[in-house]
Design a protein around this nucleic acid. Structure first.
Lengths: 367, 367
DNA sequence: ACCATTGATGTAATCGATTACAGAAACGGT
DNA sequence: ACCGTTTCTGTAATCGATTACATCAATGGT
């Protein structure tokens, strides 16, 4: 009896919370039981009307669907998810402030593909070492079905990795080098080689290289490509002067200042990404050098903006949308139960090719 | 009996799904019951050890926490959420491909503030009319606690709005003009007036205006500011030639072409945002005009890049991080039960001020 | 030493949906 | 008309955690 009274009170609070201030307009979110009552059937029938309509007599089904529409009922997906044991949410780990124009388009590819397959995307922004625990707990909490990372790193705290949650995961754009983690990547080595070959093809024999962050997966791989291309052209490593960058404007400025301070400046500059290249161009311009007359500069990524700066930037276009979409598809297949080994080439990675965009920031040496 | 057998089988499937192929390594995700068994206590005690530690004898608590650590237990937040009736997820509606450098920073502000308050952000990308239903259903599904929109529009399908779910919501950067919806906005009218006043202060008496998308909230408000500033300077509306834009590169190109075709070109150009301005400069440069020698151009937003193009772009800086953070805080307060009326000025909107950045793309007329 | 009070822990109801099984109704064959 | 199918719908168990209430132990006051 006392118990019943308590429940009644609790119910009132609930009503007030859901509805509004005036009791008259107290309109709570309808539950499956409300629909059942309105249609004069059981909750099981309502559930079936929505998820397996052909199991019902058409007459009953219509009655239920009418009630659903009248009440504006949407199934509570939290309850559904608890019962079903799996969710339709995918967590995407994104580096927080790095290179928004680039990652926005990768995300777009991911989002479009996930949406088509009925999944919803949760973006987890990750700073270098910050906020990791929150994402790890989110992954372990049963809320999400799978994991994508377009950041080179994965949240890790005190030896606890986000992968410990055992979620199906796929890496996009950068490879965290984790055993068994499928990855969709640009062929960075080949693409970086294209940068260098372009320069060499224009007659530049000495190059300045503003890299990405030392140790970064993409940087390491691209660096290998740069050296390989030089070697292939018969040039030794002394043909290359390197400056460590960070894939951001600030790295381009610092790189340019280092370049300007050089006694004998190379005629070609290879940058780790477009933002770096744009900042580089801007900085050497300010110092009185002209691009491409005095120095040729090439970027990497092919962001839209590279076509809107002065001069337009030669660069390597990444298939950003496709990288995202293919990565998302890989995860969708795994969530559907496919074996990664069946979908991937032997190395466990899908490599996509970059495309050289030769524009105005590079030109033949001495012309 | 038969039932028991079925359950047993189901359990096996669960084990295999959670664990792996080899029965030996079948490691399922631990539940609260597993921890209770391991610690030799009831599930209630485990729950209390995690959420109300001081209600337990320290001895018991330690025993439980040990078991938690040993098993690597993380509470299933789906179950928790179902029981609690509310979640820690906040859905942010973001325009899909528009102006990534700008929105990325607003999102950053939102994310930082939400994270501090223990919330997790879900990004719902929204295209003009696409994918709306998915977001509406997500909002109505009980998964999210609140709603932020930094897109001018809100998902709406067949008369059903995302606000019908009754979630606490806050608008940031753009005002969907919905009764009772709190908003954190730039003082667009004032900011646009600053653009014009800057131009007039430099002696430009006739202006070309590449607007945002006609009808867009920001555009409408800024347009009002432009006209007000002209009137204040004693200039009639014939001092302004308008071209409808779209806040993207393409709008800047189209605007520039329209400008170039003019028989008598105004000496000052006011753009709806920085991307538009950058594309405008690029296009008139290609046609042989020089900025700022032949024409002064001012942008809007203050994205990082505006300082890295040639010439550096005069613009109005928006406090992007703060807009996001303040908007997030407003929602957090509402979720904590605060009355919006207590937090907001009478109009229901918090207006933040823009800041003029006078750089190289504008200069006194005739100098 | 006994009862009252406080404190610690356990039992079981609960959140809202799905679904196995049971039971009822409709149908067909003889 | 009766029985066996098939078709449809209802009852109740279930997902994993939280928490009101019950219960039991320990403590203190007299």
């Amino acid at each position: 009896m006392v118990r019943r009274k308590f429940l009644h009170y609790k119910q009132m609070i609930l009503k007030m919370r859901d509805g509004g201030k005036t009791p008259g307009e107290a309109r709570r979110v309808p539950r499956i039981g409300d629909v059942a009552a309105a249609a004069g059937v059981s909750v099981a029938t309502v559930s079936r009307a929505l998820s397996a309509p052909d199991k019902l007599k058409s007459e009953t089904r219509d009655k239920v669907l009418e009630a659903v529409a009248a009440l504006g009922y949407t199934p509570n997906s939290v309850a559904r998810q608890l019962r079903a044991g799996h969710s339709r949410l995918v967590l995407v780990i994104v580096p927080r402030r790095t290179n928004p124009p680039f990652f926005a388009e990768v995300l777009h590819g991911i989002d479009v593909r996930l949406a088509e397959a009925g999944y919803v995307l949760i973006t987890g922004y990750m700073e270098a070492d910050d906020h990791d625990l929150r994402l790890i707990e989110l992954a372990a909490s049963g809320h999400v079905a799978g994991l994508l990372t377009i950041s080179g790193d994965l949240p890790k705290v005190a030896g606890r990795s986000i992968l410990d949650a055992g979620l199906p995961a796929v890496a996009i754009c950068a490879d965290p080098r984790v055993e068994g983690l499928p990855a969709v990547l640009l062929d960075d080595e080949q693409a970086a080689a294209m940068q260098v070959e372009h320069m060499i093809g224009l007659g530049h024999r000495r190059l300045f290289y503003v890299s990405g962050p030392p140790g970064n997966y993409n940087e390491v791989t691209r660096h290998r490509g740069v050296l390989a291309a030089l070697a292939k052209a018969g040039l030794g490593p002394d043909a290359l002067i390197e400056h460590p960058g960070n894939y951001a404007f600030s790295g381009g400025i610092a790189g340019a200042n280092a370049y300007l301070a050089l006694p004998d400046r190379p005629s070609g500059v290879v940058c780790g990404n477009d933002e770096t290249a744009i900042a580089f161009v801007k900085t050497v311009h300010a110092a009185g050098l002209r691009v491409p007359d005095d120095v040729s500069v090439i970027g990497f990524d092919g962001i839209e903006l590279a076509d809107f700066c002065e001069p337009t930037l030669s660069t390597i276009a990444q298939p950003r949308f496709e990288l995202g979409a293919v990565g998302a598809q890989l995860l969708i297949d795994r969530l559907a139960g496919a074996d990664p080994a069946d979908m991937l080439p032997p190395g466990g990675k899908i490599l996509m090719q970059g495309r050289l965009l030769a524009r105005d920031s590079t030109r033949p040496l001495g012309e």
